[in-house]
Design a protein around this nucleic acid. Structure first.
Length: 853
RNA sequence: GCGGGCGUGGCGGAACUGGCAGACGCACUGGAUUUAGGUUCCAGCGAUGAAAAUCGUGGGGGUUCAAAUCCCCCCGCCCGCACCA
C-alpha cells in the first residue's frame, strides 16, 4: 500500500512555486486585485499551531482568490520590535537585534515549510531602519500637523515592564502583557491625537459591514460617545469656576453637590495647604482601579470649604466635595450630583446627608407626594420643581437647559468621548526612536529629514534596569540642529503598536525609498480580507484606523478605512494533563490506559484537565516541527480547517490529526492506484451513462457549487465535509459500469482542484499523477455546470400532521396534484387517515408534502 | 449593571428563506484481512423498544399544516466594557 511521501513531495512543490514566481504579483490595473493579510507575528521564537491556523486561513483565501483570477497580494512580515527581545537580552545576554533576527530566520523557515504562498520579495521587519525611518518621518509630519504632541499627564505605569502603557493596553487595571497592576504616574509623554477623529472613527464603524459585530461593538464602546452638556459652576467668593460634564442637564435643578476628582487641578490646588485633603487623595490613590477594588470601595467624599453657585439660580449654593469615584480621565473630572435621579449620587447624598430633590416626575405620580427613597428614579417623566423647565419632557428640557446655559455663558450642549489620546512614549530600548532633540535653548527640535533614520545604537548594555538609551554616552548627547548648542536626544521609543499601524501600506511597495508609493497603495488598498485574533479589537485595529486617517490628513494617500473585511479566528486549545503530584505533563508523556483513562510513563494515573489555550507553563503544547515531520504540512492544514468553524476555538487532538492523515493517504491512493482504469487526460464523459454514474456526476457539480459558496462565506469546515462526501461517492463508483473511468477522472480532477487552497502540495501531486503537466497554483477554479448539477429525481418527505411517515421519489418539479395523489396512495398515509378525507394538503415543491388529517 | 454571542448524540460539529434533525469527522462496537500491533475493507452507532412505534435540538409557553430555526418568559455558559457622570 503506497503512502504519500510528504518529505519529498512538499519541498518539491514549494520549489516549483518559487521557480514559477506564483506568488509575486505586480500591479496590473487591468485585473481585479485582492489583498489578503494575516496579522503579522511577533518573532517570539517559534511558530505555534495557533499561528498556523491563522495563516492557513489566509493562504486558503489567497489561493482561492488567485484561482478565481484575482491579482492577489499576500505578504508576510515581522512585528519585530518589543519587550521580549529586551528581556532575552537581560536573561540570556544576547543582543535584542540578534535574538530577533534568529527568531525571524527560524519562523520564516517554518512558514515556508507550511507551503504558505507569500510574496517573500515584500518581506518587512519593523526593526529594520529601512522600515522605521518612514515611521519617524510620519511622526514628524504628525507633529507638524498637530496630531502628535507632548504633555504632562497621569499615565499608566507598568512596574514590571518599566514603561508607560496606553489606555487600550491596560486590561482590568493590569498591563496587557505583563499582567502587573498598573500604577498612575505623572509624566511628560508623547501622544497621538486620536481624539481628533473620535466622531469619524465612531461613525465609520457603520460602513465596516464585513467586520464581526462584536468587534464593531467593542470599538463603539471604547470610543464611548455620550451626548450631554458642559456646565460651568462658579465658585462662590472667587473667580474660579468648575466645569462639569453631564448627560442629564435636564436634572440641573436637582443638583445638591459638586464632586471633583482627586486629580482635578482645583483639588490639587486646595491640597497644597490642606493636609487632611492630601491624606484623602493619598487614600484614593492607594485603592486600586481593579474591578474588585471598585466593588469593595465605598463611595467616599471629602467636604472642601468651597461652595459652588448654581448656574441657573445665583441664589442657590451647593457644597463642593472631592470624591473617590470621580475619574479625571472622563468628562471634565468633575460632576454635579443629582441624588434623586442617579443611584450613585443618591448613595452619596444619603451618606453625607445632602438634600434629595426630585425633578423628574414619573407618569401618574403626584407631584405633591412623590419622593425618592433608596432607589433613584432614572426613567422618563415630566420635569417639575425646575422653574422654567416645569412640564417639559426630558429631551425637551435637555434642549431648553442647553439654550439657557448658552445665553448665560454658563455652558453648552456637548459630546463627551471616553476615548483618550494615544500615549506612544515607551521608556524602552527595542523600539523605533522618536526623532526629536531636546535643546535647552530651542526647546524640542525635530531631527532634520536628511538625518533620518535615527538609528538605534547597537552598543548598549542591559546590566542595569531602565532604558539603556538614557545612559548611552554618545548616542544621547548631540548638537542642536538649530543652534548647534549642546542638546540631548529623546530617549523614549514609540509604542510597537505604531509599527503595526501602517505595515499593511508598506507591503504595497515594500522596497520603495518612501514609506509607500501612493499609486501602489491606491491600487492594493484597502485590505480585502484581514485575518487575526480578536484580542486586537480595540488595540491594533483601532490604532490602524486612526493612523490611516492621520496619514490621509498629512497627504500620504486618500483612504479612511484600511481593512474592508475582517475575520477574527478562534484559538487552538489542547487538553491539559497533570500527574499524581500535580505536575503538568506534555501530551507525549501520557498514553491512554486500558480503561480509557490516561497513564504517565511510570504507569501512574493522569488527571485530565480542561481544554485550554496552549501555553508553555501548562505544557499543553504540540510542536509544529514534529507534526510536519510526521504528517506533513497539508495534513496539519487540513486538520486545522476541518474540525471547527474558523471563528470558534479548535481543540487539537492527536486522533484528529491522525484522521486527517488517513484522509491524505486515501486521496493519494485514489489517484496513484485507481480502482478503475482512467481514460487519458481530456477524455469526455458521454451523455448516456448509467444512473449510478449520473448520480455521481451530479454530486461532482453540486460539490463544486457548494464548496465555492462555503469558501466565500468562511465555512471551511463545511467545505472540507463536502469534499469528503464527494470522495466517499467516488469510492462507490461501480468499477464494471461503462465509462466509470471517465466519471472517476472527472471526480478526481474536481477533488484535486477543490483541495488546492487547503492542501496545495497534495493537490499538485495528485494533479501530476492524473497526468496533468500544469500547476494547480496556476489553474482556474472549477465551475459547476448547473445542467449537470440539477436533480432529475427528487426525494420528497411525506408528512402526516407534520410528522414524517414516508418518502417519495418523484420527478423534479412534479405538479402539486400529482404529488398529492402519490402521497395519498401510500399505505403509511392512508393508515393514518383512517378512511377519512384529509382536511388539507400542503405541498412544497421538490421538498415536502404534508397531509393534515 | 450594560453590551455582544452561544446552548443540537459520548466528542467536534452539519441542517438553505421555517420544510426528512444528527451531513462530515473523531471515539466506540462487531466482522474481514494481518503472526501481532498499526494500516486497509465491510457493517453498526440519539434515547426507549422484540417490533410497531414513541420521545428527542438547555427549560416552559406561543405562532404555524410544519419550529433547532420565528415570538415571549426562564435557566446556564462564554466574551467584552464598567465608579462613564
Amino acid at each position: 500500500m503506497s503512502r504519500y511521501n510528504v518529505r519529498t513531495s512538499e519541498p518539491l512543490w514549494q520549489q516549483r512555486w518559487r521557480e514559477a514566481r506564483c506568488f509575486e504579483p505586480q500591479e496590473d490595473r487591468a485585473r481585479p486585485k485582492y489583498y489578503v493579510l494575516e496579522m503579522f507575528p511577533y518573532p517570539s521564537g517559534k511558530l505555534h499551531v495557533g499561528h498556523v491556523r491563522n495563516y492557513t486561513m489566509g493562504d486558503l483565501v489567497a489561493r482561492y482568490r488567485r484561482a478565481q483570477g484575482f491579482n492577489v497580494l499576500h505578504p508576510m512580515g515581522w512585528d519585530a520590535f518589543g519587550l521580549p527581545a529586551e528581556n532575552a537580552a537581560i536573561d540570556a545576554k544576547v543582543h535584542p537585534a540578534d535574538w530577533t533576527s534568529e527568531n525571524i530566520a527560524t519562523m520564516r523557515a517554518q512558514l515556508q515549510r507550511m507551503g504558505f504562498g507569500y510574496d517573500w520579495t515584500r518581506e518587512i521587519a519593523a526593526c529594520d531602519p529601512e522600515y522605521y525611518r518612514h515611521e519617524q518621518k510620519m511622526f514628524l509630519d504628525f507633529l507638524a500637523a498637530g496630531l502628535a504632541y507632548r504633555k504632562e499627564s497621569w499615565v499608566n505605569w507598568d512596574p514590571v515592564e518599566h514603561t508607560v502603557l496606553a489606555n487600550e493596553q491596560v486590561i482590568e487595571g493590569r498591563g496587557w502583557r505583563s499582567g502587573a497592576l498598573v500604577e498612575k504616574r505623572l509624566l511628560s509623554q508623547w501622544f497621538l491625537r486620536i481624539t481628533a477623529f473620535s466622531d469619524e472613527l465612531l461613525e465609520s464603524i457603520g460602513s465596516l459591514d464585513r467586520w464581526p459585530e462584536r468587534v464593531r461593538v467593542m470599538q463603539e464602546n471604547w470610543i464611548g460617545r455620550s451626548e450631554g452638556a458642559q456646565v460651568t459652576f462658579p465658585i462662590a467668593g472667587s473667580t474660579d469656576a468648575v466645569e462639569v460634564f453631564t448627560t442629564r442637564p435636564d436634572t440641573l435643578y436637582g443638583a445638591s453637590f459638586l464632586a471633583l476628582s482627586p486629580h482635578h487641578p482645583l483639588t490639587q490646588q486646595m491640597a497644597a495647604n490642606d493636609s487632611a485633603l492630601r491624606e484623602f487623595i493619598a487614600e484614593c490613590d492607594r485603592l486600586g482601579t481593579s474591578e474588585a477594588a471598585i466593588e469593595a470601595a465605598e463611595k467616599r467624599g471629602y467636604r472642601t470649604a468651597l461652595e459652588a453657585v448654581h448656574p441657573l439660580d445665583p441664589n442657590r449654593r451647593v457644597p463642593v466635595y472631592v470624591a473617590n469615584f470621580v475619574l479625571m480621565e472622563y468628562g471634565t473630572g468633575a460632576i454635579f450630583g443629582c441624588p434623586a435621579h442617579d443611584q450613585r449620587d443618591l448613595d452619596f447624598a444619603r451618606k453625607y446627608d445632602l438634600p434629595v430633590i426630585p425633578v423628574v416626575l414619573p407618569p401618574d405620580a403626584d407631584p405633591a407626594t412623590f419622593a425618592v427613597g433608596d432607589t433613584a428614579y432614572v426613567d422618563d417623566g415630566r420635569i417639575f420643581n425646575s422653574d422654567f423647565l416645569d412640564g417639559l419632557s426630558v429631551p425637551d428640557a435637555k434642549r431648553a437647559v442647553g439654550e439657557r446655559l448658552e445665553e448665560l455663558g454658563r455652558g453648552r450642549r456637548t459630546i463627551a468621548y471616553r476615548l483618550r489620546d494615544w500615549g506612544v512614549s515607551r521608556q524602552r530600548y527595542w523600539g523605533c526612536p522618536i526623532p526629536l532633540i531636546h535643546c535647552a535653548k530651542c526647546g524640542i527640535v525635530p531631527v532634520p529629514e536628511k538625518d533620518l533614520p535615527v538609528e538605534l545604537p547597537r552598543d548598549v548594555s542591559f546590566d542595569k534596569p531602565g532604558n539603556p538609551l538614557d545612559r548611552h554616552p554618545t548616542w544621547k548627547n548631540v548638537t542642536c540642529p538649530d543652534c548647534n548648542g549642546p542638546a540631548t536626544r529623546e530617549t523614549d521609543t514609540l509604542d510597537t503598536f505604531v509599527d503595526s499601524s501602517w505595515y499593511f501600506l508598506r507591503f504595497c511597495s515594500a522596497r520603495a525609498p518612501i514609506a509607500f508609493e501612493r499609486g501602489a497603495a491606491e491600487y492594493w488598498m484597502p485590505v480585502d480580507q484581514y485575518i487575526g485574533g480578536v484580542e486586537h479589537a480595540v488595540l491594533h485595529l483601532l490604532y490602524s484606523r486612526f493612523f490611516t486617517r492621520a496619514l490621509k490628513q498629512c497627504g500620504y494617500l486618500d483612504l479612511e478605512e484600511p481593512f474592508a473585511g475582517l475575520f477574527t479566528q478562534g484559538m487552538v486549545l489542547h487538553q491539559t494533563y497533570q500527574n499524581v503530584d500535580g505536575e503538568w505533563l506534555f501530551p507525549e508523556e501520557v498514553t491512554p490506559g486500558s480503561d480509557g483513562n490516561y497513564i504517565d510513563r511510570l504507569g501512574r494515573p493522569v488527571v485530565t484537565g480542561r481544554n485550554e489555550k496552549m501555553s508553555k507553563s501548562k505544557k499543553n503544547v504540540v510542536g509544529l516541527d514534529e507534526i510536519v515531520d510526521s504528517y506533513g504540512a497539508d495534513t496539519a492544514r487540513l486538520y486545522l480547517m476541518s474540525d471547527s468553524p474558523p471563528e470558534r476555538d479548535l481543540e487539537w487532538t492527536e486522533t484528529g490529526i491522525e484522521g486527517a492523515w488517513r484522509y491524505v493517504n486515501r486521496l493519494w491512493r485514489m489517484v496513484s492506484e485507481p480502482t478503475v482504469t482512467l481514460p487519458p487526460v481530456g477524455a469526455t464523459v458521454p451523455n448516456s451513462i448509467p444512473p449510478a454514474l449520473l448520480d455521481v456526476r451530479r454530486m461532482i457539480h453540486k460539490t463544486i457549487a457548494a464548496v465555492t459558496d462555503d469558501l466565500e462565506k468562511f465555512r471551511f469546515n463545511r467545505a472540507v465535509a463536502r469534499i469528503r462526501e464527494l470522495t466517499n461517492a467516488l469510492e462507490g463508483i461501480p468499477a464494471d459500469a461503462p465509462d466509470a473511468g471517465a466519471v472517476l477522472r472527472e471526480g478526481l480532477e474536481t477533488v484535486t482542484r477543490l483541495i488546492g487552497p487547503i492542501m496545495p502540495h497534495l493537490s499538485e501531486e495528485m494533479w501530476r499523477a492524473l497526468g496533468r503537466p500544469t500547476l494547480i497554483a496556476e489553474t482556474r477554479w472549477p465551475k459547476a455546470d448547473p445542467e449537470l448539477a440539477r436533480d432529475e429525481q427528487v426525494t420528497i418527505a411525506v408528512q402526516v400532521n407534520g410528522k414524517l411517515r414516508a418518502t417519495l421519489d418523484l420527478p423534479r418539479d412534479a405538479a402539486g396534484p400529482a404529488v398529492e395523489e402519490a402521497a395519498l396512495a401510500l399505505p403509511q398515509v392512508s393508515r393514518m387517515l383512517e378512511g377519512k378525507p384529509p382536511r388539507k394538503i400542503v405541498v412544497v415543491p421538490n421538498r415536502i408534502v404534508n397531509v393534515v388529517a
